[in-house]
């Protein structure tokens, strides 16, 4: 009965299968965790999960947009390493430098990301190769700048990571606001719609006269900005930037995007799925910690989740 009564709901669920699956998994994990341990249920622990996922959420936000265009950004890890090392290296404990350096780092992220986009457009080679090459170059540059942790930030800067507004971590609030803004942008702004168009059918978008170059440039520049924000957050969290901080983020940033139902082929998905994917991974690691499962097995669990996700979402291709 209900299936007939709510055709629109059914259609919505069908379209957002990824989101629905992830919400289901989140609920299962929450219930499981609640039975598992008293300490899991405390607000402190739940806020912890949200707070710890801030870095991953920020970098995955930018990654989602590049993947929506059918591309990918494999330079995010090195970019985070470079920008975080520069942040603490240039601030060097001087409170007056915080604002100019923060602004400069965000601009630099935008420029490096924009360069990625420019290379993708002009060289016409796959973004995978362009950003892989850029990642290697940036990693070399940051190691030329410093071989270890560089500089430090004034104690007040840790507010970015540990500060709270109405009891909620600031990082988490920033994440929610940014994701909401980008979700609205993807849905209602013209450029946002073009992102889906380019990702769905690049040739078609070109034939229709859509500003493909502008779309590509925008998503990679945006990914660079997201990396800069992640870098600032990580410096605040650890008090210092070092040249390998971002190493794991390159591949880690792709997992929540894929788990959230955004297709690597582009044109399908969205940032809501990514946010839920980030929380799912964070929650899973938290639950596994409570179960005293070593990090080695957490790695296996994460890999298996990726395999499961990519095999569930895949669309049957028509074959001759």
């Amino acid at each position: 009965m209900s299936t007939i009564a709510y055709p629109r709901l059914r259609a919505r669920v069908g379209r957002n299968r990824g989101v629905v699956v992830v919400i289901g998994l989140l609920v299962v994990l929450l219930v499981f965790g609640a039975f598992l341990s008293d300490r899991f249920r405390t607000p402190t622990n739940l806020l912890n999960i949200v707070e710890q996922s801030t870095g991953l959420a920020l970098v995955s936000l930018g990654q989602t947009l590049t993947i929506l265009t059918g591309g990918i950004d494999l330079s995010v890890g090195s970019m985070i390493s470079l920008l975080s090392t520069l942040t603490s290296g240039l601030i060097a404990g001087n409170a007056a430098m915080i604002l100019p350096v923060a602004v400069g780092v965000v601009l630099l992220g935008m420029v490096i990301g924009g360069l990625n986009g420019l290379l993708v457009i002009t060289l016409r080679i796959h973004p995978l190769i362009v950003t892989l090459g850029m990642g290697a170059v940036l990693q070399g540059v940051v190691l030329l700048y410093s071989l270890g942790p560089a500089g430090k930030v004034p104690p007040g800067f840790t507010f970015v990571a540990y500060g709270k507004l109405f009891g909620i971590p600031i990082g988490a609030i920033v994440v929610l606001v940014l994701f909401a803004l980008v979700a609205g942008f993807l849905r209602y702004a013209r450029l946002g719609r073009y992102i889906y168009a380019v990702g769905d059918d690049d040739e078609g978008a070109k034939l229709m006269g859509l500003p493909r170059a502008r779309v590509i440039l925008f998503v990679y520049a945006f990914s660079g900005v997201c990396c800069a924000l992640t870098a600032l957050y990580l410096v605040a969290r650890f008090g210092v930037g070092q040249p390998y901080t971002g190493l794991n983020y390159t591949l880690a940033s792709i997992t929540p995007v894929v788990v959230g139902g955004t297709m690597l082929t582009g044109g399908k998905g969205g940032v809501l799925g990514t946010l839920l994917g980030v929380y799912l991974i964070s929650l899973l690691n938290n639950v596994l910690n409570f179960m005293d499962v070593s990090t080695h097995y957490q790695l296996i669990a994460q890999g298996l989740i990726v395999i499961a996700a990519v095999s569930i979402y895949v669309e049957k291709k028509k074959r001759i």
């Binding site: 296996i300 890999g303 990726v306 395999i307 990519v310």
Partner: peptide
């Protein structure tokens, strides 16, 4: 890319 990435992690 994803398939070999996942087996790499596992």
């Amino acid at each position: 890319f994803l398939a070999t990435l996942a087996t790499m992690i596992v």
